[in-house]
Structure formats: structure tokens, C-alpha cells
Amino acid sequence: MSKVKYYYDPESLSYRKIERKKRTTLKYAFMFLLGSALFGFLFVFLASQYVESPKERALKRELQNVQLQFQLLNRKMDEAETVLANVADRDNNIYRVFFEANPIPDEQRKAGFGGINRYKNLEGFDNSKLIIATSKRLDILQKQIVVQSKSLDEIAKLAEEKEKLLEAIPAIQPVKNEDLKRMASGYGMRSDPFTKVRKMHWGMDFSAPKGTPIYATGDGVVVRADEGAIGYGKHIRIDHGYGYVSLYAHLFKYNVKKNQKVKRGELIGFVGSTGRSEAPHCHYEIFKDDVRINPINFYYGSLTAEEFNELLENASLENQSLD
């Protein structure tokens, strides 16, 4: 029950009951409700600005964690870019130089992405700049890795070809030093043993006893093992690939046959004196792209520096050939 209030009336010298008008009551009620609403709104507004809800605190922690992850990702990309730059430097200045391949320009390695905006869907967020910058770095890094990967694939192929080339090129003497009587004649103008006329001697003569082993000077395929060439007698030709062919003439007998694959150092025949020959020896020639070249430059795989100098000195003497 509400309290009844009175006021003192000096005219009547008595207390009178305070009568509140209905309009006034409604007015007070309205003002109370309005004040309450304004207070409530202000409270909610201030709370939303300065007081975080559990959900907001969780989202804030999640955002901070994402920012930290982006920072860590950028550090890892810094490290990856440093490593990749080192690999690219070695690729251009060591690997490609060794295998005689053109270096990859920096413009090709570090090129960005032109055309349409690839990152439009990442715009409009609080951390859009960070996200877009990181995405660009990651895309460029991935592209550089692809370029480098293709380059290393090419280097690996070149290395494989180089290894095959080094195995194929004639690189040893056809007759071992301990089996030689002497290096009878070299490449160049020599006196013919039969006519005594100076003429071009297209190979090198290794004098050795009949039956001395003759070895393949490089990997290849036997393309001839017959007596069909005039003057060579029993002879063998090995195709080494890459334009190289080696010839071994005046053999006593064969140890290989046509189309047989051989390895460097493999026994292919024996010294003889068949064909146009004055004494047992191995006449040795090398062809490059069907042109005869001096075999003296192809013994790096079996001779020391001293042995090579001695061989070079003997080969340069303008003596008489044995065929």
C-alpha cells in the first residue's frame, strides 16, 4: 500500500492530503521509463566499448594468434629466400658454368605476377595489407622454387649427359705401357715403310709383341670387326657416340664382334701385323665427326704427366711409320 502524504495549509491551519493528478503520475512514469531506457542504452554502449564479452575475448586471442603465425611465416620465408638465393647463385655461377649452360636471368627468377588483381578477395579486412603482402611473397617464392627446380632438373640431365660423354670419349691408350716395346710413330707427316715417301700418317703406332692385348679406349658399340678396309688388315671400329669413333688396325685376332657394346678398358683384340704392316703393332686412329684428329690429346685417363710428356716427345719425331 502506497504511503499517503500531507502538506500543511497555513490558511486553514490544518493538514491537507496531497492529491496527485493522474497526468502527473503518467508524466513521472514516462520520465522514469525514458531515463531508464537512456541509462540502459548508455550502459550497453559503454559496456560494448570498454568491456569485452567472452566471445570477443576469444576472437581477439584468435586474431593475435593469426598475426603471430603470419609473422612466423614471414620469418620462414626470409630464411627460404636466403637459401634459394644461395642455390640460385651456385646454379648460375658453378653448375651452369661447368656444364656450359646459359645462366637464368634474375628477371626470370624473381618475376612477379602481372594482369588481374590476384588478391582482390583479400581486401577490406583489418589486416589486409599484411595478408596481401605475405600472399605475394609466398606466390613469388613458389614461382622461384619452380624455376629453380626446373633448372636443377636440366642440370641433372646435363650432368648425366656429361657423365656419359666422359665415359664415351676415348681417354686411354689402346695398349698398356708395360706391354709396349715403343711408341713407334705419331700423327703427322712420316716416311712410308714401303715406298720411303713422306706422307700423312693419320694415327699412332704402338709397337708390341704379337698377341699383346688391345683395349677399348672408351665406352661404345663395335661397328666394324673385319678386314674390309684396304691396308688396315683385321681391324675394329668403335662408335663412342657424340661424333667420336676409334679405330684399331693390323690385329692378330678379335675378341669382340659387330654390334657388341664395350666399356673403356675392355679387351677387344690382340696385336698383329695383318694388312699393310711392316711389324707387329696397333695402328690407332680417332675420328670426330668423320674427320681424323690427333689421338695424342686423348690419353688423360691412363698416363701421368711425365708419361704423357714422354709420349708427346716420341710422337713428335718424324720417323718411319710401321704401316
Results as ranks from 00 to 15, higher is better:
Ser151Phe: 06
Asn86Val: 14
Glu310Pro: 03
Asp89Arg: 11
Glu167Met: 05
Glu313Tyr: 10
Glu123Asp: 00
Lys234Phe: 06
Asp91Cys: 04
Asn297Trp: 06
Phe270Asn: 12
Glu79Ala: 02
Ile230Leu: 15
Arg292Val: 11
Lys110Met: 01
Lys22Tyr: 08
Phe30Glu: 03
Ile286Lys: 03
Phe70Met: 12
Phe308Gly: 05
Lys253Phe: 00
Ile132Asp: 02
Val262Asp: 04
Asn294Arg: 02
Lys5Gly: 03
Gln320Met: 12
Lys199Val: 09
Lys110Arg: 05
Pro280Ile: 10
Tyr248Asn: 13
Phe43Ala: 08
Pro54His: 07
Ala225Thr: 09
Glu56Leu: 14
Ser48Glu: 13
Leu34Val: 05
Gly243Ile: 09
Thr82Asn: 02
Arg109Thr: 01
Lys257Gly: 00
Ser128Ala: 14
Phe32Gly: 13
Arg20Thr: 10
His281Cys: 06
Asn121Gly: 05
Ile155His: 09
Gly265Leu: 07
Leu158Thr: 00
Gly186Lys: 05
Pro280Lys: 09
Leu59His: 11
Asp139Glu: 13
Met183Ser: 12
Ala37Met: 15
Glu123Arg: 00
Pro54Phe: 06
Asp289Thr: 14
Lys60Ser: 08
Ala168Lys: 11
Met204Leu: 04
Ile132Ala: 02
Leu180Trp: 05
Lys22Met: 12
Met200Arg: 10
Gln173Phe: 12
Lys76Ala: 07
Lys257Cys: 03
Thr82Phe: 11
Glu154Pro: 11
Ser185Pro: 07
Leu317Tyr: 14
Gly114His: 04
Asn294Ile: 05
Lys76Gly: 13
Arg182Val: 01
Lys164Met: 13
Gln49Ser: 08
Glu62Phe: 11
Ile145Gly: 12
Glu19Ala: 13
Leu68Ala: 12
Ala249Val: 03
Gly220Met: 02
Glu161Lys: 09
Asn294Asp: 13
Gln144Val: 04
Leu247His: 02
Ser273Asp: 10
Gly228Leu: 15
Leu26Cys: 00
Gly40Pro: 03
Glu178Thr: 13
Gln260Ala: 10
Arg224Ile: 12
Asp239Tyr: 14
Ser135Lys: 06
Ser207Lys: 04
Thr274Cys: 00
Leu42Trp: 09
Asn309Asp: 12
Ser302Gln: 04
Pro193Asp: 02
His250Ala: 06
Val147His: 00
Gly124Lys: 05
Pro170His: 02
Phe99Gln: 06
Gly40Arg: 05
Ala225Pro: 00
Asn255Met: 14
Gly211Ser: 14
Asp323Lys: 07
Ala216Asn: 01
Phe43Trp: 14
Ala184Gly: 10
Phe70Arg: 04
Thr304Cys: 08
Phe45Gly: 12
Asn121Ser: 15
Met1Gly: 03
Lys5Leu: 08
Ile116Met: 15
Gly188Lys: 07
Asp153Gln: 00
Val87Arg: 06
Val223Ser: 06
Thr212Ser: 09
Ala88Met: 04
Ala208Tyr: 01
Arg23Trp: 13
Phe39Ser: 15
Asp192Asn: 08
Pro295His: 00
Lys143Met: 07
